[in-house]
Design a protein around this nucleic acid. Structure first.
Lengths: 295, 295
DNA sequence: GCATCCATGTACAAAAGTGTACAGCGCCTT
DNA sequence: AAGGCGCTGTACACTTTTGTACATGGATGC
């Protein structure tokens, strides 16, 4: 007959902690319970797993031998635990949302408002230039510019983000010709992020000249621009609310980013995921003018 | 809080068996217990893991999702179970002994006698041309011709196996010159097993001519020889007791195989391993004349 | 149609496990 | 030296889990 799997969990904790009292605290049981369950396991296995010293328990060589497999069980149990967090069908729990950096900043700006609407939900915003994987539960919800071809993904259109040229109000920029503007110093993404919105547009605008100040995220670009390092193409929802920035010209018609909310079909029915989806959709409706540069 | 690991074991069995009653039988508990423990797990996880039909349980998609990790836990638990069989410090249990084929046959010949001496022990004889690995618990005991350099291995000398030329009694062989004998048909190992005892000796004896009948184990060689296919170099303990065989000449002084009993130091203290060791040592003492070709 | 078998579900008594409180030992600090 | 702290071990009362017996429903065979 197999050993009680749960007693193996106790064994592993005691081997790690070294004393009954600390292991009991970690496991949330009493210390005699730890002792008894280890004793039951020793009886089941037929070997002594610990030497009992006056002030601690030390694994025997037999005990040492079982550790690796028990740790493998723990690893799998942790995976189950993580997955089960996504299976819970209550309103409470964590919802993890992954979005491109500027959009993540927008969501984060309203996270207090989301939290007051959905107080039982813990909310995690992951900003990333790379695609989180819904199938692998790296995130519960994604906001992306395109709908992936993968089966099982459900998409809702949130709206469109517009972009414009921005400069610090303290930077002396005259409304002049394209050539004159292009000759000024600029702030943009580095070569590795040339595919970010507006960067290929800027390269063409400046006849192939790269921005003088380059960074790898919107925060860097935003900070450099608002402190006068140069001009930059920024999303309107980032530039317009900042009193230190002003637009140079109107929105750029050729530079935009559609926003789609993606969810795995299996998760859509979960109350907490649906609640967050609805709240995000409502937020984007409410902020539509800001997103489109019409505020 | 983590799920009860042992409830995951119940979940896995029910998912496999499909009904409470068969799962209960497999687990050795009552069917209401299976139902209750799965229910407790569902409460812990926060999701329904089974659809309950009138005649069976069917995993939900949530349940399906947890199966792979639970199977990983099972695999690790089985490994623990196998290892624990080697840790048990009682006299009862299985002892696995690995030996070269002819020696394994000798041991097997006396396994009934060993069993009557050690009735609580289950005895496994593994015959193999390759080295079982003591460190990896592929065997508890090894009989080999050499003592490996590895640390942690304890060796006891069992004795020496002698070899001689044998032919079927029905085969007309005269006691004649080496050249005349060499010209007769022979039975031996194939090229892949040239390192087996006596094979290089035979190749030299026949001036480089390979045996006409070739096999890859002693059983083949023994059977072919005793039924008249040709002459063969066989261990004396295999050839002498067979009434259908006779020796051609005496033992071959240059062909022999020392026998060492090897055990990992950690296992030597186990009562059942020690019991089998002692019994094997005694057997080899008792059978020494047969082994050395002096019976 | 009736009897039988097999399934899940339920309730109660019995068995097993757990927590609480205390004892004994060793170590450290005042 | 005395007191405090932390450890393991033990015993008893309490709590939880389990097995047994029964009920209900559905399917199958005669």
């Amino acid at each position: 007959m197999d050993a009680n799997w749960d007693d193996l969990r106790v064994f592993l904790t005691l081997a790690r902690e070294g004393t009954l009292t600390t292991a009991a605290k970690t496991l949330g049981v009493s210390h005699p319970t730890v002792a008894r369950r280890v004793q039951a396991l020793e009886k089941q296995i037929g070997a002594r797993l610990f030497e009992r010293l006056p002030d601690r328990f030390v694994p025997t060589s037999a005990g040492e031998e079982l550790l690796a497999d028990t740790e493998a069980m723990e690893k799998a149990a942790h995976s189950i635990h993580r997955r089960s967090a996504g299976l819970s069908d209550t309103v409470s729990g964590t919802v993890r949302l992954s979005a491109e950096e500027a959009t993540a900043a927008l969501i984060a700006r309203y996270s207090a408002e989301l939290r007051s609407k959905l107080p039982q939900i813990e909310f995690e915003v992951i900003s990333s230039h790379t695609l989180a994987n819904l199938s692998r539960r790296e995130a519960d919800l994604l906001i992306r510019e395109q709908v992936p071809e993968l089966g099982g993904i459900v998409a809702r259109k949130l709206g469109r983000v517009a972009y414009a040229i921005y400069a610090a109000r303290t930077l002396p920029v005259k409304r002049s010709s394209q050539a004159a503007l292009a000759a000024l110093p600029w702030v943009g993404f580095d070569d590795d992020h040339i595919r970010m919105p507006g960067q290929s547009w800027l390269l063409e605008y400046r006849a192939g000249r790269r921005p003088e100040i380059r960074g790898n995220n919107w925060l860097v670009l935003h900070e450099a621009t608002r402190t006068g390092a140069g001009l930059a193409v920024l999303p309107c929802h980032l530039g317009d609310p900042d009193p230190m920035l002003r637009r140079i010209g109107g929105i750029i018609p050729d530079v935009f980013a559609d926003q789609w909310l993606l969810v795995h079909r299996d998760l859509r029915a979960l109350p907490r995921v649906r609640a967050v989806m609805d709240a995000v959709v409502e937020l984007f409706q409410q902020e539509r003018p800001l997103l489109e540069g019409r505020s």
